[in-house]
């Protein structure tokens, strides 16, 4: 409601990461639970905040988008996408621990939530010719799978699919995380079977079919938070 646009057409002035962090900080100082935001007198509460770094009016306008959110959510859930916020029990604890609650993004996902236990090995592909080699990337994925590693990659990067293909070819487990359209990725033959047999989890930091308003570096931060080990290809 406060941080995401809900469709391509949605032009709501959503809170930036910094505005959100400032709001959460001030709101928590009131000692109130988030359910106060849903009460009839939330306007006076929001206006009473110091408002250092955000605007109360902006928040009140955003909070009126309940029906729009219901419509958007129906669309997401209707195609099997799950939505997890930091307040959900199943939300990866490692993200909240490492990024902090205010920076922890909503996760839109397909597949096995159990793979997000913070123990995966992240693979970071650079721009060198070697890492553009499809076969080499598949081989790397297969190798990690054979060693029982759950592999996590930035799925928006070139050859990320090859790494995951390699993982899945050896019956390993993988996690693909990005800011692209999750429905498009989940419906692609590259990933669909892996998701369906619970060996692949696809995550996006933006709602399906919506403009991404998440900084690319946040993807790397979340990958880092979900990883126990890191492999960097310079």
């Amino acid at each position: 409601m406060l941080r995401y646009r809900l469709s391509v057409q949605d032009s709501a002035a959503v809170l930036s990461d910094d505005q959100w962090a400032a709001f959460v900080h001030e709101f928590n100082d009131t000692g109130e639970g988030i359910d106060r935001l849903l009460s009839n007198d939330c306007a006076s509460l929001i206006e009473s905040l110091p408002q250092q770094g955000f605007d109360a009016t902006q928040i009140q306008v955003l909070l009126k988008r309940g029906v729009a959110l219901a419509i958007a959510s129906e669309q997401w859930i209707g195609v099997g996408v799950w939505v997890l916020g930091p307040h959900d029990d199943l939300y990866p604890k490692s993200i909240v621990d490492k990024l902090g609650f205010a920076r922890a993004p909503i996760l839109f996902g397909y597949g096995n939530i159990g793979l997000l236990d913070g123990k995966a090995t992240s693979v970071h592909l650079g721009d060198k010719k070697l890492t553009r080699n499809e076969q080499m990337c598949e081989h790397l994925g297969a190798l990690l799978a054979v060693h029982g590693q759950t592999v996590i990659v930035n799925i928006d990067r070139t050859q990320a699919a090859s790494v995951l293909n390699g993982v899945l070819s050896r019956e390993g487990c993988g996690v693909g995380l990005g800011i692209g359209d999750l429905i498009e990725k989940g419906s692609s033959h590259y990933y669909r079977d892996g998701v369906m047999n619970n060996s692949l989890t696809l995550l996006s930091l933006t709602p399906p079919n919506c403009d991404g308003h998440i900084r690319v570096d946040v993807v790397e931060e979340v990958i880092a938070a979900l990883s126990g080990n890191h492999l960097h290809f310079a």
């Binding site: 409601m1 988030i34 009839n40 939330c42 309940g66 029906v67 307040h87 029990d89 909503i106």
Partner: peptide, 12 residues
């Protein structure tokens, strides 16, 4: 408060 709980509780 989970995301889905929030969806059901938000005031219009």
């Amino acid at each position: 408060v989970g995301v889905l709980c929030l969806l059901r509780g938000i005031l219009l």
